[in-house]
Design a protein around this nucleic acid. Sequence first.
DNA 1: TCCGCATATGGCATCGTTCCCATGTGAGAA
DNA 2: TTCTCACATGGGAACGATGCCATATGCGGA
Lengths: 342, 342
Amino acid sequence: MSSPGNGRRRRTRVTLRQVAEEVGTSQSTASRALAGHGYVAEDLKARVLEAAARLGYVPDISARTLKGQASGLIGLLVSDLRNQFYAQLAAGVEQTVAAAGHQVVLVDDHGESEHAARAARAFLAMRADGVLLAPTGREATELLVEHGTPVVEVDRRSGARSCDAVTIDSEAGARAAVEHLLQLGHRRIAVVVDETMWDTGKNRLKGYRAAHREAGVPLSRRLVLNLGLRPDDPQRDVAAFLDANPDVTAVFAANNVMAEAVWQEFKRRGAEVPGRYSMVSFDDLTWMRVVEPGLTAVRQPVYEMGSRAAELLLERIAGGTERTATRTLDPTLVLRGSTARP
Amino acid sequence: MSSPGNGRRRRTRVTLRQVAEEVGTSQSTASRALAGHGYVAEDLKARVLEAAARLGYVPDISARTLKGQASGLIGLLVSDLRNQFYAQLAAGVEQTVAAAGHQVVLVDDHGESEHAARAARAFLAMRADGVLLAPTGREATELLVEHGTPVVEVDRRSGARSCDAVTIDSEAGARAAVEHLLQLGHRRIAVVVDETMWDTGKNRLKGYRAAHREAGVPLSRRLVLNLGLRPDDPQRDVAAFLDANPDVTAVFAANNVMAEAVWQEFKRRGAEVPGRYSMVSFDDLTWMRVVEPGLTAVRQPVYEMGSRAAELLLERIAGGTERTATRTLDPTLVLRGSTARP
DNA sequence: TCCGCATATGGCATCGTTCCCATGTGAGAA
DNA sequence: TTCTCACATGGGAACGATGCCATATGCGGA
């Protein structure tokens, strides 16, 4: 590999100037040789490249960025990396961003918008070329947009002023799920949500209601279990709810966290699925197709959402499209064994 | 928030010089005021801070880094973000790194060491303060160490020259799992692995063998199903293996991917667990405690491994410890319903 | 012969911060 | 009075890469 015999840590990094001196030319010429544009004689260029490789030259992004070039960094802000949903999203983003030769700076705001704002400031400070946000407030988006950083919102929309967005049609997904239950003959369908402050939760509830209205089935406030943000022990709350509403025959869980709580509670009380309860989850994770019976679920193209958002952001950075674009992806209802007639 | 009425994109970012001019002082003084060290009169300092906030000043990390300061970036290289194992790891790392005021640059090498080497070069180029690697070859580690970047290897060790590492005791975990099966009376225990080139796979196989030796149960090559890296369709291979070895009564899956393949194949052929087969997984994911029966599994403290590795790296960056440290975390065997006497 | 142009190379200012150093003040000590 | 020292401020040189501009040469066409 690189220069032998140079003990452990190199004291200072190899700079372009050193490479230039090695071949007896100027920084300018060496720069052109490495960059591959501008006039450089073929043989000189080869010698510069060889020297750069031999000395282990690595260009300094800070200097390049300072001079006004792109930093090559894309910020990505998610709410909870431990949740498979966001992990998939991040994977999709990383894949696309890396393929374009950029790097992802990942921040997890744990659902706190204050933390998100801090992250936005950090993205600004590092001169990120663009940022992808699963927003938890409009502050971060606004800060970035105002400073001229391209932003694409993913999954959720902050309602902040114009920026691109890639989301999944929550309302349609929820409607399909609940329609399915209604068609099977269920009339008292519970819905379990943890947040209704962002458009994901709001729209899933909206879809739930729309399906009822369309089917002419009356809605009841009682059947909406709203646990609020980051509930301590959702399973306990679900248990209490089921005890209080013994007439419920089906449950629609608005996201994977809720689905797990509901499923575990069914298991704990030995309630048969789909015998006693039918169940549908919004979001389709590994475990839902592995359990017996499999969970009927609204599958979201999460990985794809990540990569589409990244593509959109890269286009925006390249300065392509002018007016802001919103892309909505369609979820699909995957039928498995957890749903049947009541 | 910041200055009102300034249309959309600010054309240029606010620099320290502009803040200084705003309060009628010099860059030097403004810098000291913001940095909070060196002599600055109290009232002047307050005015600088106020002006910085009012103008929406965000320091430029590139310039700071170029001047020789830390970049605040920590590189993290994982093999497959879609795998919950690495997502948990990344979450643990992010949490700890963010708490220390740094940012994580995340790269997924998809198990390709060539990709890993490219990532290492990128980390070098952006002057990452330190790097965490789940190595897929020694090249990346060596490149970074040689350039003087602190490196901590996580989960796997590359065997490259001295750098810190945080791993989980694969051999002990595997031994515990297989001992459990042996104690239940199993004598023909299959082991399913996909890689034996890194120490994780190697050591799990070692633990499997050690347990047999200790129990005085003869080993058979036939019972080792080695699928090799990234098998096309592991479930099919497992099926073929089970057909060819009908005397097997228990299966030890060496990681979560193998466990899923084995589990799905059991389900497909309607083989009762633990009636026909007992099963243990190395790595304990959500679905394993949700399925019926629950999977007996070797639980790895993955999130903790991530945060411990990050802590170690931060210490190393701070220049604390001198000699390299290796930390090994202990896995625990979680008994559930998938294991019983043959 | 002279101009224009493609080719080739080097000098140097620039990006925004940091920090060393020079400069300056006033108070208290010698 | 003069020296010292703590306090306070500004000038300006780095850091490393980039790219504009000046310079130089040789060749073909007018």
